[in-house]
């Protein structure tokens, strides 16, 4: 049975134009009292290595011509960073953030290599079991 009050998000990309929607959609989950499980894999996971989140400034290849304009408006309008938005959402709500075990193994990363916001390293089977129980699953 899937639970309409649960959302699972796979974060594959580690570019700023993808990480923003991750943090904003997770906030939307918190507003709606949902449990949100976030699975960080590949480039999405690398963005959560210690010291990395605030450094992310790349935009997806498809939209790269927008990168300077995007960074300019973010700065000019003093938009909270995607990472602060995610930290705030996690503090206020029921958000769990997992590192993909396969990616961690591939790049020789262990829990200490990630920002403390990452709760655990888990395998895909465990995450998909969460997705199976979620009314909403997104891949970003």
């Amino acid at each position: 049975m899937s639970d309409q009050n649960r959302m699972s998000i796979v974060v594959f990309d580690g570019t700023i134009d993808k990480l923003f929607p991750v943090s904003i959609i997770a906030s939307g989950g918190v507003m709606n009292d949902m449990r949100v499980d976030i699975f960080l894999t590949f480039w999405g996971l690398l963005a959560f290595r210690k010291g990395e989140p605030y450094k992310v400034s790349k935009v997806s290849k498809d939209y790269e011509e927008w990168a300077p304009e995007m960074m300019r408006v973010l700065q000019e309008k003093k938009v909270s960073s995607w990472y602060d938005t995610l930290l705030q959402a996690k503090e206020l709500g029921d958000i769990h953030i997992y590192a993909c075990a396969m990616t961690a193994d591939l790049f020789d990363l262990s829990k200490e290599d990630f920002e403390p916001v990452v709760d655990e390293i888990i395998g895909v089977g465990e995450f998909i079991a969460m997705a199976q129980e979620s009314g909403t699953t997104l891949y970003i």
Binding site: S27, V30, M31, K77, K78, S80, T85, Q88, A89
Partner: peptide
Amino acid sequence: RGSFCPGPMMELIRVIR
């Protein structure tokens, strides 16, 4: 003011608590 969605909403949730 000056904060973007979802900032004001999240601030309200924090204060209401």
